[in-house]
């Protein structure tokens, strides 16, 4: 089962990207969703409430998928372990 990486601050994404295995999932939440609006080589997920609150809905890049809390819960059940990056 792949690892779920939850990144909540933009500066932490770099370290997470270096470390995460190719098959792992990276979810941006809180302030890290700002990174969804800049080019990214890797496919990322971003939490919808945080994207919408920050006015980023139209600025999310093509290889970023926006997910809601139900999908967030699902990600937790389908990955192990879960690591947070701040």
């Amino acid at each position: 089962m792949a690892t779920l990486h939850i990144v909540n601050k933009s500066p932490a994404l770099a370290s997470c990207l270096q470390t995460a295995a190719l098959e792992d999932t990276i979810l941006l939440i809180e302030d890290a969703v700002y990174q969804a609006s800049v080019p990214t080589e890797r496919k990322l997920l971003a939490l919808t409430d945080d994207v919408d609150a920050r006015g980023l809905k139209a600025r999310v890049r093509r290889n970023v998928s926006v997910v809601d809390y139900d999908e967030f819960v699902n990600l937790v059940t389908t990955h192990q372990p879960i690591v947070s990056w701040r």
């Binding site: 909540n8 939440i29 809180e30 302030d31 939490l47 409430d49 945080d50 809390y69 139900d70 967030f72 819960v73 699902n74 937790v76 059940t77």
Partner: peptide, 19 residues
């Protein structure tokens, strides 16, 4: 921090999903 706010929304969704 937004930590607690995100966590309570996550918890609510998890409980609604039956976890």
């Amino acid at each position: 921090s937004q930590s607690s706010s995100t966590a309570v929304k996550f918890a609510a969704a998890a409980l609604v999903a039956g976890h």
